[in-house]
Design a protein around this nucleic acid. Structure first.
Lengths: 328, 328
DNA sequence: TTGAAAGCGCTAACAG
DNA sequence: CTGTTAGCGCTTTCAA
């Protein structure tokens, strides 16, 4: 079932069929109708494998996620998927955490021409991609990025977002504000830590002893563990800023188990506004990133570069939002 | 940068290079070394677009998910991704909920040969795919399936799982057991409802008035709303079985807000064992599906069919598990 | 064990 | 406006 059959059925050449399906070149209306009739009669659909080889593009973009089960990425991936599809692309998704030698695989996918470009949400992969021939591979960094790397990126101003969260707590009268999660390996954590310290300094405050506290992994258990440790130092902190919502929820539980109240005794602010932020009591106050728009912009930037590789490298900074609920 | 350059560099024909990279045919060891040296020197990686056309396969599988932000699917998708990759395939992910005319798109992708086959996790898409030429398209249904459709499937015995959950509640002395969520359009909900009624009947019990209660969407808000309604009928139910964890968490909150305790006054059992089941207090007792293995099996079944289309259509039933925590 | 050559199905340059 | 034709880069006969 190929373009040949359609051409024969319609009594035209394959070039004309190609013009019709691509809506390119000039085709007489009556001829177009004949071809369309043949296409419908045969249920023809152009072989993408052949078209891909001929046009030398796959119209596929690779999306590298460190861990699917982290709900944080869901909104971004949805944004990428939607925008990509609107522009005639599809999304090949790779969980880099699940695959030990993922790095080799996905760089291969790019060199292979199996995908046209990549969007990287994974801090580790960002690092290793930066190690490759920087601008040779068409990719963009999303959320985790280095403005000076020469790689296009989209993200938020993590330092300012963290500072805003801390200023919010200060505005509520908090003075001993602890921070959980500041893993220096990741730009986002490093920046948030910087913002935290800036906002404190600005108000003439200092971090409680031990703060910021580094996480092993930014999940509920670590949030619980580290908050419990934080609560045991005196004078006790009166607020906790966590760099990820699961950490914040764990911290909330630790405060509760210590016989204290959120937010009366300890206010808590999270980061990311994941779905379950509204399913806990008190509801979590948190910093929201415009996930869907982050994804959409990443896809847009990548696809524009694909269409015009000479485009200057750009960074896109999107606005964050403090979602005030009940925990602070 | 093509096979031609490698051939020239190595001083052999392109056929020989092809044999080396595919490890096919007989090649003298010394020749192989020459070719491999050339490949390394040039950093060559075979163009997949060309190979795909020639071999007439993309080694891509399409995964249809109704809503990527539903954490329920994350584990399954991870399973698919891992198994596919081990077998030399990659995963093209489509959020069918995000795209209004997704159905046309993904059937096109199959006809196109852009993907070799599909795994469908989306109840709606399962329905519409069943409407197409049944066995013409290589796809398998995962979680939501019809054993009599002639389409390969993998899933759990939803009726038995629900019955087990209800039997568990009965074993704990509960007698007025309500159920939330029984949307008849979806096989999984229909089956769980059936299991619920079976287990009750078996014990000589009847559903509380109004139960099962249908959801609008299986989320926290609906769980809250419906549980609140359920709690207002008397005699009051002493247990709630929810067909999805977010519903169960919402129900837990409703019980709490009604001034009652979980599990003392009302026991609650959810379904799916999503990550936040352990982040709420009391921790959620729930029915777990072997998500990762469901995904792995779906990928395995699909790829085996791709390699041998004559394979008999099979169904794979995996075991569920009751995870006993604190809510029941 | 190797090479020459056909051809996968399409697009695009060119000619008419 | 339409058709002929040359490849895209690979795999795979077939012949040597």
């Amino acid at each position: 079932m190929s373009i040949n059959e359609v051409a024969r059925e319609a009594g035209v050449s394959i070039a004309t069929v190609s013009r019709v399906i691509n809506n390119s070149g000039a085709v007489r209306a009556s001829t177009r109708e004949k071809v369309e009739a043949a296409i419908n009669a045969l249920g023809y659909s152009a072989n993408r494998l052949a078209r891909n080889l001929r046009t030398s593009e796959s119209r596929l973009i690779l999306v590298l996620v460190p861990d699917y089960s982290n709900t944080f990425y869901a909104g971004i991936v949805q944004g990428i998927d939607g925008e990509a599809r609107r522009r005639g692309y599809h999304m090949l998704l790779c969980d880099t955490g699940a695959d030990p030698d993922a790095e080799r695989t996905y760089i291969e996918l790019l060199k292979n021409r199996m995908v046209d470009g990549a969007i990287c949400l994974d801090p580790d992969s960002v690092q290793s991609l930066l190690g490759e021939q920087p601008r040779a591979l068409p990719w963009v960094a999303c959320c985790e990025f280095d403005p000076d790397s020469g790689i296009p990126w989209v993200g938020i101003d993590n330092a300012r977002a963290a500072a805003d969260a801390v200023r919010f707590l200060i505005g509520r009268g908090r003075r001993r504000i602890a921070m959980i999660g500041g893993d220096e390996r990741f730009m986002y954590a490093h920046e948030r830590r910087r913002g935290y310290l800036t906002a404190l300094a600005e108000a003439g405050l200092t971090p409680p002893q031990g703060s910021p506290l580094d996480t092993f992994s930014p999940d509920f258990d670590d949030g619980y563990r580290l908050a419990a440790r934080m609560l045991s130092v005196s004078p006790r902190c009166d607020a906790i800023f966590a760099v990820a919502d699961p950490l914040a929820v764990g911290a909330m539980q630790a405060v509760h188990d210590a016989g204290l109240r959120v937010p009366e005794d300890v206010a808590i602010v999270g980061f990311d506004n994941v779905p379950f932020a509204t399913m806990v009591r008190p509801r979590l106050t948190t910093v929201a990133q415009p996930m869907k728009r982050l994804g959409e912009n990443a896809a847009r930037v990548l696809i524009e570069r694909l269409n015009d590789p000479e485009l200057p490298v750009s960074g896109t900074m999107l606005e964050h939002d403090i979602i005030v609920r009940e925990s602070a």
